[in-house]
Amino acid sequence: MILILTTHGDHSTDQTIDWLTHYKAKYQRININDLLVDQTISYKIDSTQDEFTINNKSSKDFTVIWFRKSGVFRSSYLMLKSKSILKDQLSSFLSFEYAAFVQSLKISFKNVTWLCDIESVEALDKTKQLILASKAGLDIPKSLITNDKNCAAEFVKKLNGKSIIKPLAESEIFNAGDAKYSISPKLLTQIFFKALKTKKFLPSLIQEYLDKDIELRIFFLDGDCYAMAIFSQLDNQTKIDYRNYNFDKPNRYVPYALPTTVIENLKCFMRDVGLNTGSIDMIKTKCGRMVFLEVNPKGQYDMLSNPCNYFLEEKIAKSLINKLN
């Protein structure tokens, strides 16, 4: 049987499940946020067994696991409520508890085939990605992590004054009342350093600014690449980051055929990071460079499946079914 770890209301999961039903595959869906509502997990620990039950189904019945989504615990009502009590102390305790629980689940899944291996996902960070991508033959942006103003200024100078600063971990949006603050890639110029008073700061990732021709979003599944070109440079609002969506006039999203060398390099990279699926971001520059930015193992494939008519939901269902055999 197939186990799907996801969240309540994930539309992409719903659509893939429609195809699993169509092909008469057996599956169990676990909405991780529903563990606090109506799903039952029971894990008896002793020397003789290391299995547990999910809604009365034994973990041994699951031979294929699709790790679709996990990180919504922090938006669960328990977390939100805990933030109003004891500020961050309680919520951070709960986060660690939750992480330890997920860790305990992994132990008992031994002979399973993963679509999106939870271990590989957790071991993935931006620096490691860039190093492995570069080793796999992919072009990466010139990058520096530093906490020093002079090092940073020197690096930016070498890039002809054009660079971007972006989070080492994840982009975030903070809500404060009606205001929203977004931490996302931003242009960085030499003027910035002149105004900067401190000599040291929290280690930060600085990368060369790439003069985009198009952005590429690639969905990778079992060695196949489904690519889409995003014409974000046609619109000033989306030039630096296409996620500053223009809803009135959306960017053009069209199918793209990757050069075979890039496909081979991506396959090699994905093998090295231990992932059989993921959404890959790349940029094609005006001078023709194909630059790898990052892979998001649990990216929204819906945003390329629909405009490119790739039927990725069906392909994922078939991939899960193939893994059963």
Partner: peptide
């Protein structure tokens, strides 16, 4: 009006598949 674009590599931009299918 962004209906078309100029390119040196038209082969990089395949046509949209007009397949239609549904699991239902």
């Amino acid at each position: 009006n962004e209906y078309a674009f100029y390119t040196m590599n038209p082969e990089s931009f395949p046509l949209l598949s007009l397949d239609w299918k549904t699991p239902h």
